[in-house]
Each structure stands twice: as C-alpha cells, then as structure tokens.
C-alpha cells in the first residue's frame, strides 16, 4: 500500500496522519509538498491532513484547494484512488469541489477541542466498513470552522444517497443536520472534521479512529 500525505504550509496534523498510516500499513507515507505537481507513481491512498493551510487566508482551505498538487489529487480521486480529508483537509476538499457543501465558522464562534461521540451513518463505504451502522464512536475534534453548510436540496440528496458517513451525536458546531463527515458520489472521497488519526492508540484515550484506517487501507482486523 503506497500512501501519501499532502503537506501545505500551515498543515499541523501531517505527522499525526503519517504515524497513523505507517502504523496500519507498516510503511511510511510519502510526504508530498503542495507545490509538487505529481503524486508518487502508484499512490493508492491520499490523506489531506488537518491544520491551518495558508493561515486560513481568504477562507479555510481556499488557497490549498487551488495549489498545484490538488490537480493531481482531483485526477487521482476521479480515477478511484481513496482520498481522506480530515479537518482542514475536509475544508480543502469542499473548496476544491470534490465534496459538496462548505464549512463555516462554528455557530457558537468558539474553537471546539474535545472528544465527541459520532454516529456512524454509513457502514458500507470503504472508509467505514469496520463500523456497524448506527454505532457510536468517540473521536476528537479540534476546529473553528466546522459548521457544515449545504442547501436543503443538496442535504436531502446526500442523505438519500447514503453519503453522510458520520453525524455528531450531539450538536458540536451548528452543522446542518449534525453532519460530521461526507462522502463523494463514488464513495472514494471522505471528508470529516473529527480526527481519526488522534484515536489510534490506547494512550490517546481510545482507538475508534484506528478502525477507519484499517478499513480504508484494506487491513480489516
């Protein structure tokens, strides 16, 4: 399994993501700089990490979504390569229009940093096959702009198509319909505000995030 982590100026969860990928695959990911134009040959899993790419200038994820490497990420996604965007990575994926909707300032205006319960809505996707539908898992969040927004027709459509992967069990940031994670129509791109890479070791207080990587990287326990 050849994995890659895209690193933007201002990414700060790229190393956590690399630790998670290496722990599951046994092989360190390629760390790909945002100004690179190509992914390493044979990349078969791409992660966009959390952080504050480009200082959140203009809008969270807006500049990163227009960076040179994102064209290659979009091409890979179109070719079926799994792409996981966490936190700022989710913001980048919506800004790049690889996922529907937008992530706005939290409704309560506060930065939210704590472990929250999530409800697994779709347990059939390549990222969530290790969970049971309706299962509650605990994953940390740490964000200021996690308030998911899409118009009612889009929300109805993605719900109807089973593209809501996770919902917050309790309201966390004002997200429409408490949506915490969204899949693209092909099911190979997942964006989520909670950080699964921060829940892969007992020392983290839980390992619910590990199962996402095990499913997505094809090493189901």
């Amino acid at each position: 399994m050849k994995t890659a982590v895209i690193v933007f100026p201002g990414s700060n969860c790229d190393r956590d993501m690399a630790v998670a990928l290496e722990q599951v695959t046994g092989r360190a990911p390629a760390m790909v700089w945002h100004r690179d134009t190509d992914l390493p040959d044979g990349t078969d899993f791409i992660a966009l990490p959390g952080g504050f790419s480009y200082g959140d200038y203009l809008r969270s994820g807006a500049m990163a979504a227009r960076s040179p490497i994102l064209r290659s990420v979009a091409d890979a996604a179109a070719g079926g390569v799994p792409v996981l965007g966490v936190c700022n990575g989710f913001q980048v994926l919506t800004e790049a229009q690889l996922l529907p909707g937008a992530l706005m300032r939290n409704a309560g205006l506060n930065f939210v940093c704590r472990t929250v319960p999530l409800k697994v809505e779709n347990s059939q996707s390549l990222f969530t096959a290790s969970y049971n539908a309706g299962e509650e898992i605990n994953i940390p969040v740490a964000h200021h702009d996690g308030n998911y927004f899409a118009d009612a027709a889009t929300l109805d459509r993605i719900e109807g198509e089973g593209r809501v992967a996770f919902r917050y069990a309790d309201s966390v940031n004002g997200s429409a319909r408490d949506i915490a994670g969204v899949l693209n129509d092909a099911g190979n791109v997942l964006g989520m505000m909670p950080h699964p890479e921060r829940a892969i070791d007992r020392a983290h207080g839980g390992t619910d995030g590990l199962r996402l990587f095990e499913a997505a990287l094809g090493v189901l326990a």
């Binding site: 203009l58 809008r59 807006a62 227009r66 919506t94 529907p100 909707g101 937008a102 706005m104 927004f149």
Partner: peptide
C-alpha cells in the same frame, strides 16, 4: 467565481 467567493455560501 473561482477564488474570491465560495458561491456555495
């Protein structure tokens, strides 16, 4: 349309 505004919101 491409950068300065996010026309979703």
């Amino acid at each position: 349309a491409k950068l300065l505004a996010n026309t979703v919101i």
